[in-house]
């Protein structure tokens, strides 16, 4: 299994802390549309996250690490 991206925070936990910026004109967002935006944003984002870590990045890190190690031991 590819390692899962760490969710550093519960996603979309910011709705309650909205009021600070909510003085903007037209910032009158119904809860339904807000929820919809959050849902779709995460759906789009997670469709990529769910692809996991492509092999090329695993190989890249291993290669870079090896190069680094080789260089280090030559010094």
């Amino acid at each position: 299994m590819p390692p899962k991206a760490p969710a550093t925070q519960p996603i979309y936990d910011d709705r309650e802390s909205e009021p600070e910026g909510a003085h903007l004109p037209n910032a009158r967002l119904g809860p339904e549309i807000q929820a919809k935006i959050g849902l779709q944003l995460r759906s789009l984002y997670n469709s990529i996250v769910d692809e996991g870590t492509p092999d090329r990045f695993v190989r890249l890190l291993d290669q870079l690490d090896k190069d680094k190690g080789t260089k280090g031991s030559q010094e």
Binding site: P3, A5, I48
Partner: peptide
């Protein structure tokens, strides 16, 4: 290394 790889999916997104 593991932490970097684990971050890749969200980094890509």
């Amino acid at each position: 290394r593991d932490a970097m790889l684990a971050a890749v999916p969200s980094l890509r997104a």
